[in-house]
Amino acid sequence: MADFIKYTEQPSNHRDLEHKTIAELLTAINGEDETVPFAVEKALPQIERLTEAASEQMLSGGRLFYIGAGTSGRLGIVDASECPPTFGVPPGLVIGIIAGGHEAILQAVEFAEDDTEQGWKDLQEHKINEHDVVIGLAASGTTPYVIGALEKCRENGIPTGCIVCNPGSPVAQLADYPVEVVVGPEFVTGSTRMKSGTAQKLVLNMISTTVMIQLGRVEDNKMVNMQLTNDKLVDRGVKMVMERLKMKDYEKAKDLLLKYGSVKKAIEMREK
């Protein structure tokens, strides 16, 4: 690892930030953010391999785990928590784990990311096994909490991936399917909640959405399995049912949707 360079910790390309106007700061941040999708594009082959592996595991009955610390861990929890309402899957199918536990979602837990043994302990609480897949999230690629978890996964034959923002990192070397999105120095030196966090969020969106499509949770381009948790989603669902079944009566379509609880079930029962 002698040649390993933390690009995420390199000095910002921008100086004297405190002397810039608001317009100058916003323009400069936006300019940096514009580079992130291109970095993600370069990593598409790696993202494809990881997504294929995750899909295969989950089609065989496995679960998807995200594990990380700080911003990376929070992003994993956000993505995992959005899968049930968006795609109608059980809460335990995609699981986000963060160093420091639930407390760390809202505020930093001192030194939680430095514990090399706790990550594996946290995974064991969910009875992790070889049918599952674990994706380590670490912008630097050096987080001990994630490294320890992936090491134990490897020892136990559990497939792993990662999303990191430095090339050749310890985390990537431990992962079976590493994804390295190299976004370069942050606007504020070392603040990986910025470009690195944006890159990780983009990749997480790509992986979870594609996996859910592979699992049959999307039809055409519609969220036919979404949970009906508010009026906006009910209205969206009613319109899907009306379109698919060629119904003109909004209230009848709504009654059908609410009776069966999802667009997919409503359509299936009506078409029988």
Rank of each mutant, 00 (worst) to 15 (best):
A172K: 09
R217I: 02
I158T: 09
G88E: 03
A253V: 06
K20P: 01
V241H: 09
V164D: 01
L202A: 11
F187P: 07
I163E: 01
E186Y: 04
N156L: 12
T160Q: 08
P45D: 06
M206R: 02
N30S: 14
E52K: 13
G119W: 00
G100F: 05
F38V: 05
S191Q: 09
Q10F: 11
I22M: 13
D255K: 14
E113I: 12
R193P: 02
V241F: 05
T35Y: 12
N166P: 10
T143E: 01
E18D: 13
M242G: 01
P91C: 00
T189A: 13
L202G: 02
C162A: 14
F187T: 12
P45V: 03
D16R: 10
F65E: 02
L26A: 14
A112L: 06
Y260G: 09
V40W: 12
Q107H: 15
T51W: 05
N13Y: 12
L174N: 04
E130C: 07
L50E: 02
G76F: 02
E110I: 11
K265H: 08
S12K: 05
V171H: 07
M194C: 02
A28T: 14
S72F: 03
N13G: 15
V36Q: 11
P185T: 10
L215K: 06
D79N: 04
I147Y: 00
